[in-house]
Design a protein around this nucleic acid. Structure first.
Lengths: 208, 208
DNA sequence: GTAGCTACATACCTACTGGTATGTAGGAAG
DNA sequence: CTTCCTACATACCAGTAGGTATGTAGCTAC
């Protein structure tokens, strides 16, 4: 992708970020075990030397993807948008819908990057699993915090356990992506979204 | 695993079945892309010649696992047990609970074989994806049939769409396994099970 | 200017992968 | 008893994987 053999200026952080970005896309498409370092660097203007300068092993790349890329994605796509809603029980399905609508057609069959890696790697590499779990935990706790707040504000029924509901909601997100991935049909997504929404309505506090 | 070099008696179907059985376990542990044919045959008393006699390629093995092993598992674990219940809305969470309780501790972090393969392979190999989708469709349709019956029998609210609910239920099953897989905690399973159960109660018809 | 560390590029290596070529024993058919 | 196809076993191979050894240009400190 470099225009010519220009005088190569240095920028290690940018280089590392570029590797991570390309690697993320490739892993998203082929899975972690299915992608090769050669493929990744081929989609870069870098070489193997650069790769192994920034990442000790292939595993280390995967760990960085979890610790940095996926963590940031969860915050940007799910946690922070939720904070704009007064009532998270309204916000949750709405954010989900927005993410669905913002997902381009060609990404639908790719599923959710986090879920993909969880299903593929968590039984293969325990370190990888712990890092992915930390990301998932971040997500769950973010939702849980909102639900606690909702309870205080009187939007959520008092008998509902926020942690349990948060787990259920996140699981529904992952499950919806996983299901849509194989069915290759946006309609399935909408169907599952509608089901989740109707469920959330049953746990909303009835106004006195 | 052969006792000695006994006079090797022939049994092609048995040989094929043995390969599929071992392969299933290995794929369950390491993923499809993560498992090697060498590993599979090493856990057998067979050789590479036997493997490639029964399966043209590694892909063909994967396809057979979907078409035969996974298909049969869905029927045996989810569809057929459901038929023993008068009311599927009662049967579904009960069957799920039984499967959970019957799952040994060491299998918990391995997740659901079908879901694992779906997330790993459906964006990698379109043929594999179609075969896995067929299995999932079998599951969904099995649940849907029961729900239609339940509607006729007056167990299910009339305004509920059986197909949509079936998709939601199956997605919840896969999601629950996927979530428990990474959290490594049976309690998460029970939590998700309880949430599903409470949801199903909201769609049950109120007795007149 | 230059010493020296960092950020890469190039070439190379070993292990292992899926797959093949070929040989041979089992067993039903004639 | 032989024929012949099937069901394997054995040996081998080319490609590619992750990883390394080594060289060198950019940049900072002095």
């Amino acid at each position: 992708m470099g225009e010519a053999t220009e005088k190569r200026t240095r920028n290690p952080e940018r280089t590392r970020a570029q590797i991570l970005e390309v690697a993320f896309k490739e892993v998203f498409r082929h899975g972690f075990q299915g992608v090769s370092i050669n493929e990744i660097i081929a989609k870069t203007d870098l070489t193997k030397g650069a790769f192994f300068h920034h990442f000790e092993t292939k595993q280390a790349l995967g760990y960085a993807l979890a610790d940095e890329t996926l963590r940031e994605m969860v915050l940007a796509r799910w946690i922070r948008p939720l904070e704009n809603y007064e009532n998270p029980l309204v916000g949750i399905p709405e954010v989900l819908k927005k993410v669905i609508d913002a997902t381009p057609d060609e990404s639908i069959p790719l599923g959710c990057p986090l879920n993909n890696l969880i299903q593929e790697m968590s039984s293969v590499d325990p370190v990888f699993r712990d890092k992915l779990r930390a990301v998932l935990e971040l997500w769950i706790e973010g939702v849980e915090r909102q639900l606690r707040q909702a309870k205080k504000s009187g939007y959520l029924k008092k008998e509902v356990d926020p942690r349990r509901l948060a787990e259920f909601i996140v699981m529904n997100h992952e499950g919806a992506f996983g299901m849509t991935k194989i069915m290759r049909d946006r309609q399935v997504f909408r169907s599952l979204h509608a089901s989740l929404k109707s469920y959330l309505e049953t746990v909303m506090a009835v106004p006195a």
